[in-house]
Design a protein around this nucleic acid. Structure first.
Lengths: 101, 101
DNA sequence: TCGCTTAATCGTATATTTACGATAAGGGAT
DNA sequence: ATCCCTTATCGTAAATATACGATTAAGCGA
């Protein structure tokens, strides 16, 4: 592989894309994002009611989506409101768009 | 969750999307697909030369991309020519498009 | 038939993912 | 301070993913 700027950007995009794709690579996380998109925001507890999974498992999936930058949590005591992260969502959209042309 | 047709389609799309995303969830596989896209097709050996990975590892990644339906292999003795699967590629593109709106 | 080339598969080791129940942490209210 | 509600984190078990070298399989040519 060549070591020019294009290659570096190419590689960065490759890893950025893989990271997001990995976060999207589980049905529950896709479903959570669709749910968030539909309702714009929601609380962890709402998801625990909707999905047949333990609270800790949902929390773990939310953590991964947060680590990938796709969602963000906002403290709203005693709950936490999760929303899609608009900037990163748009960035992810662009990455996939350019990947698929 | 409701059990109507929409929910079933929704769920199918969710799992289809997760499956493809999972296949895309590794930098090497993204890079392989970019390479295939750039050259339209290539042989396993070409990839082994490009990536610092064992032949068996490349083969394993190709297998996963094939299982996800993103690529297809064509026998061209003594080699195997891999190309992107155009129909499934288009389907994947649509799935991501509708997912990101 | 016997090699040669190419790629898949096997066997294996290690790391990561996914799920759970139990526990801890944080903020409000009493 | 104590309780309650909500969510994160811990500890753990089972499954899956990732990588490698070694081996097998399939096709072609000598």
């Amino acid at each position: 592989m060549k070591r020019n700027i294009e290659t570096i950007i190419y590689k960065e995009n490759t890893e950025a894309l893989a990271k997001i794709a990995k976060a999207l690579g589980h049905p529950t996380r896709i479903a959570i994002l669709k749910h968030l998109d539909k309702q714009s925001c929601c609380f962890t507890g709402d998801l625990v009611d909707v999905f047949p999974l333990a609270q800790s498992t949902i929390s773990q999936h939310l953590k991964e989506l947060k680590n990938a930058g796709l969602i963000q949590g906002e403290l709203e005591p005693p709950k936490i409101k999760y929303c899609i992260n608009p900037e990163n969502w748009k960035a992810a959209k662009l990455l996939f768009q350019q990947f698929f042309e």
